[in-house]
Computed example of a mutant assay.
Amino acid sequence: MENYLPPLNNHNLPYPDTIHPIVVHFVIAMVLFAVLCDIIGYFTKNSRLFEVSWWNMTIATVSIFIAIVFGQIEAGLANPYIAAVSDLNTHTIIGWALSGIIATITGWRYVIRLRTPDTLPTSYLGAGLVLTAIVCFQIYLGDKLVWIYGLHSESVVEATRQGIL
């Protein structure tokens, strides 16, 4: 079966570099900008910002599933060493949970948009702040996997291939 798969490069990937961070940074930006637009729109009574927020959350909802697909592929090819496994597993679980949370909040936002497009309930703003906190923790874990554990960096891949890690 391995004869039919593309060879892995120095990053232990079948393509030039990691794709997950590119897509996930897009999702992060969309979610954080949506929450910011909701907060500013709530306090300034500018309902046009609610429309901006809605579209950002909608695109983030679709994009997070693309990020998860590449994240799963790249996590499977990472060959994490023992120290990184716990954080990688936590990052994976929170990523899947975030896909459901973001989709649920976007669905809730859709209902709000239909019923009262010019206002937002404070409970929705609170959910946005909780979502922001979860996203920030997920960013911390992702950064740790790259900058502390060095997953998919050439030196760590080489050390893993040689059995050093």
Rank of each mutant, 00 (worst) to 15 (best):
I64R: 00
Y81Q: 03
D17T: 10
I101S: 03
W96H: 10
I139V: 09
R161D: 13
N46F: 04
I93Q: 11
W147H: 11
I164P: 09
R113V: 01
R113I: 04
E154F: 10
T160K: 06
I134Y: 00
V69L: 15
E154Q: 09
S99G: 14
M1W: 06
L88Y: 02
V111N: 05
S123G: 10
L8S: 05
V69D: 09
I148D: 13
L5V: 07
F43C: 06
T92D: 09
Y149G: 03
F43R: 08
L5R: 13
H91F: 02
Q162T: 04
S153K: 15
G163L: 08
Y81M: 03
F65S: 09
P7Y: 09
L165S: 07
W55T: 07
W54I: 03
L131W: 01
P21Y: 02
A34M: 02
S99Y: 07
A84R: 04
A127Y: 10
V135P: 01
L49R: 08
L145T: 01
F43H: 11
M1Y: 06
L145A: 05
Q162W: 12
P7L: 12
Y15H: 07
W108V: 14
T119A: 14
A97G: 13
H91L: 05
V62S: 11
L165R: 12
V157C: 04
I40W: 04
R48N: 14
I19T: 09
